[in-house]
Every structure is written in C-alpha cells, then in structure tokens.
Simulated assay, not measured.
Amino acid sequence: MKFDLTDDQRDLAAALEGLLAASDTVAVARAWADDDTAPGLALWKRLSDLGVTMLATEAGAVEVCVAFEALGRHAVPGPWVESAAYLPVALGREVEGIATLALPPHVPYALDADVADEVYVGSTPGASVGARHTSVDRTRRLFSVEGTEASTDEVHGEAFELAVLATAAQLLGAGERVLADSVDYVKARKQFGRQIGSYQAIKHALADVKIALDFARPLVYGAALGEVPAGAAKIAAGDAAYLASRTGLQVHGAIGYTAEFDLSLWITKIRALLSAWGTPAHHRSRLLEELSR
C-alpha cells in the first residue's frame, strides 16, 4: 500500500517535530514519572496550542496518526489518547484542558487522573478518583475511578477505534526512536577495535526491526483511511515496536537495562502500550471473528 502525506500533513509533522525536539522531552518524562508535572503541563499547553487536541474533531484520523507518532517518538507523557482521540469523538466536541477516563475492561484505570480537569468512565463523568496503581512505565500514572461502573455497552465504537489507532501510532513512533538510537549506539560503540555495528549479526537484527516497522507503517495509515481494522494496525505496530525494544536491549548490552539510560523510557512505554486499549489477544480475536464471517 502506497501512502503519501499531503503538504498540510507534512507541515503538521514538521511543526510537531520541531517543537518536541526543542522541548527536552526526556527531562519532561522523567519529571512526570517523579510526580513533577509542571514541565509536562507546560508542554501539553504548547501542543494544545498547536492544535493536537482538536485533530480528532477538526481534521481526521491521518492527522491524529501523524501527531501520535511524534508523541511516541519523543516519549511525551500525559493522557493524550484519552484527551485527543477517544473523548473528542465520544463526546462530539474538543476536550477543554486535560481529560482522562477509565473504560473497563480494556482501560481499567484512568491515566494521570490527578492532573485532569475532567475524569470519565466511558463518556460518563466519574464520581471520584481512587487509589493509584503502578505501571511498568513510570510515566503512566494510573488511578482507579470510583462511583461509576462502565460496561461494554458504554463503549463508543468509533471513539474506541480511533484510540486504538492512536496507540498504534504511538507504538510506531516509539519503535522508530528505539531503532534510531540503537543504530547511533552501534556506530559509536567499539569492541575489539571495531564498531559493533560492523558485525553482521547486529546488522541483520537491526535490519529485521526496520523491516517490521516499515511493514507496520502502511497498516497504521491504512487504518487511518479506513482500509484496515485499527486492531490489525495495533498488532503490527506493537509487534514491531516490541521487536525494536528487544533488539535495542541486546545491542546496548548491560547499559540498556539501567533506568538511568534514556532507552528505558521507550522500552517501558512500549511494554505498557502493548496492552493499552486492548491486548494483542483481544485484537487478534476480533480480527479472527471478522475474517470468519
């Protein structure tokens, strides 16, 4: 499938890349994980002013994918899928400020509910924010929402599909970042007098990641055009990003396992996003049902 962005979509991608590259998003993410949300909220405002939160209602799914790929590439924290994908479609309007939601069983906890202006269960306002829960990704600050029960009947189908697609785009961007950082590392790291990137085994492993990401990209944007189920895009992007994270750990060696090394931000985010907005098993089951009809 051949897909080219329009000039306006390329301009959006360039504007987001320029803003995020200049925003020290690593420091923002680390501060967010330590409950210092001020830098992240300031970045949220700049991205909102750029129009990210209105893309779902004022633009389209392709623009949403462009934005979320950039958010994933730069490990931007915050309830972006909730505020800029699911809720604008479910509510029929742009979300003002920051909003988050729980949507059991696929979204059991509300992301960053303590900083949200609005907290929902599905599209129903939540009564109160409850206990905090731990995620493998320290930038994902999860909270129970008490007082309202959601059921699968409350799921807004179109909104859910866009949220799944936005998560897939985040995974794609995160996987691309891990691959880029891994390539830079193997070019710089020397062992036995040679760049480790000169070894065929490492070249082949990184090439496999590149191929997986290149195959996932058409599915993500094909889903944005309505030609591919969003679940298929998330499965492909998740598999590719997970392969990128495993390979990135292998080529970085022991340093890749340390929380102090920036690679950890993307590896833990990828792991958390794999099950966000529906596990791979859930989406594979849905695809099987559609193919069996």
Results as ranks from 00 to 15, higher is better:
2 K>T: 12
5 L>V: 09
5 L>Q: 01
10 R>L: 07
10 R>F: 00
11 D>L: 15
14 A>P: 06
20 L>A: 00
23 S>Y: 03
24 D>H: 01
27 A>Q: 14
30 R>Y: 03
31 A>S: 15
32 W>C: 00
32 W>M: 00
34 D>Q: 15
41 L>P: 04
45 K>V: 11
46 R>N: 13
47 L>T: 07
53 T>H: 03
55 L>C: 07
57 T>Y: 00
64 V>M: 06
66 V>C: 02
67 A>M: 13
69 E>K: 14
72 G>K: 09
74 H>C: 05
77 P>M: 08
79 P>R: 01
80 W>I: 09
81 V>D: 01
82 E>P: 03
83 S>G: 07
84 A>P: 03
85 A>Q: 11
89 V>K: 04
89 V>Y: 02
90 A>M: 10
98 I>W: 03
101 L>A: 05
102 A>G: 10
104 P>Q: 01
104 P>H: 03
107 V>M: 01
107 V>T: 04
107 V>I: 13
108 P>I: 09
110 A>P: 04
112 D>T: 10
114 D>R: 15
114 D>F: 09
115 V>N: 03
117 D>C: 06
118 E>M: 04
122 G>K: 10
124 T>Y: 05
124 T>V: 14
126 G>C: 08
127 A>D: 14
128 S>D: 12
130 G>C: 08
133 H>T: 09
135 S>K: 09
137 D>L: 05
137 D>Y: 09
137 D>P: 04
140 R>C: 07
144 S>N: 00
146 E>Q: 12
148 T>F: 03
148 T>G: 00
149 E>V: 15
149 E>S: 15
149 E>I: 15
151 S>K: 03
153 D>E: 14
153 D>P: 02
153 D>C: 07
155 V>R: 08
156 H>T: 12
158 E>N: 10
158 E>L: 12
166 A>H: 07
166 A>W: 09
172 L>Y: 04
174 A>L: 07
175 G>R: 04
176 E>M: 03
179 L>S: 03
182 S>A: 11
182 S>M: 08
183 V>Q: 10
184 D>H: 00
184 D>T: 09
188 A>Y: 08
188 A>C: 04
190 K>I: 11
195 Q>I: 06
202 I>R: 00
202 I>F: 07
206 L>T: 08
207 A>F: 10
209 V>A: 00
209 V>I: 08
210 K>S: 15
210 K>I: 05
211 I>K: 14
212 A>C: 08
213 L>G: 02
217 R>N: 02
218 P>L: 08
219 L>K: 15
229 P>H: 11
232 A>E: 14
233 A>D: 02
233 A>Y: 02
237 A>W: 05
237 A>I: 13
238 G>D: 06
238 G>L: 13
240 A>S: 02
241 A>V: 13
242 Y>P: 00
243 L>V: 12
243 L>G: 04
244 A>C: 00
246 R>N: 08
247 T>H: 10
249 L>S: 06
249 L>P: 01
253 G>M: 14
254 A>L: 13
254 A>M: 12
255 I>F: 04
255 I>P: 04
259 A>M: 08
259 A>P: 06
260 E>V: 13
263 L>S: 02
265 L>R: 13
266 W>V: 07
266 W>Y: 15
273 L>Y: 15
275 S>D: 14
280 P>Q: 06
282 H>D: 10
284 R>N: 08
284 R>L: 10
285 S>A: 14
286 R>W: 06
287 L>W: 08
292 S>C: 03
